[in-house]
Nucleic acid binder design. Structure first.
Ligand code: MN
Ligand code: MN
Ligand code: ZN
Ligand code: ZN
Lengths: 148, 148
DNA sequence: TCTGGGATTGCGAACGGTTTTCAGTATGAT
DNA sequence: ATCATACTGAAAACCGTTCGCAATCCCAGA
């Protein structure tokens, strides 16, 4: 069966190879923010004849085609998610690595206002919050001090 | 004369070597957000016997000592600025690369509120805005589409 | 259905920023 | 001034990512 992303790729007129089909499937089924190695790991499970270089190339292709979006969570590597209509940001639990998505129209408006006051029109922005659960925020939160 | 950062380093009990003195001076005099290569370039002008490896090491040292702060502006490399009492963010002019600093207590409060509603206590965050001047935002702003 | 040729792939090498290793040197407490 | 220790320069290693190239695949057209 053709995955959601595969259909999207065909619409965009991309040549559909076996590898692209598999990677599209992997990304369609993902509900997290996998990095390239993780996508490769999952792809290989479906078809072992996929190289990491092709995954890199395909991720870039899909990103350029606006089928997926690159997410920078502060660790050294690029992470990806399916492109969605609704814009959102991420809160990263520094204890567990869990990623919580959130959106805030007020915050977006405020950011827009700030840029405008500085004489600028926004063409892109980035926002991530790093945090620990309120519950157990007391114990050893002192040396949780990461390098975010 | 001992630079502002050199004094700070001594207060923190760091061993003061010639290289560290020079790098401290460079960083004290900087009013921009230089990357490691740029710091090295400026340091070598004062004392040619400073290696890039030492600059890397010293930047990390100063960062850990909270004397300077690392800034991630989306280009591949780490940039630095003197640690200040007042927290701020950056608006990057994608046309010129110019960096405008701004602070917004309202925005900080809003971000705090959002995290709290999600059950989290913030331990760190990151926000950058990429934009183009309002004036000439009309001409070819379409393909300014970077990879921020 | 068969085919030609441009697009795509796998592999390994190259890349750019950063860290590490190691032998030699400088620092600052004594 | 001495000496243990921390620091340094140079080069190699590292890590995520991109690139070069020959082999292979896809698919529009016959
Ligand atoms: Mn997301
Ligand atoms: Mn700044
Ligand atoms: Zn946003
Ligand atoms: Zn802030």
């Amino acid at each position: 069966m053709t995955s959601r992303l595969e259909a999207l790729c065909m619409e965009k007129g991309l040549k559909m190879t076996g590898q692209r089909r598999v990677i599209s499937q992997v990304l369609s089924e993902a509900d997290d923010h996998p990095d390239v190695e993780e996508v490769h790991r999952r792809a290989v499970q479906i078809d072992p004849r996929i190289s990491i270089a092709t995954v890199y190339r395909t991720m870039r292709l899909l990103e350029d085609a606006q089928v997926i979006e690159r997410v920078d969570l502060g660790d050294g590597r690029a992470r990806y998610e399916e492109a969605t209509a609704d814009h959102h940001h991420h809160l990263i639990d520094t204890r567990t690595g869990r990623i919580i998505e959130f959106a805030s129209p007020e915050l977006e408006a405020m950011k827009e206002r700030i840029a405008h006051e500085l004489g600028y029109k926004i063409v892109g922005h980035r926002l991530e919050i790093y945090g620990v659960p309120l519950d157990d925020a007391g114990d050893d939160a002192r040396d949780e001090e990461e390098r975010p």
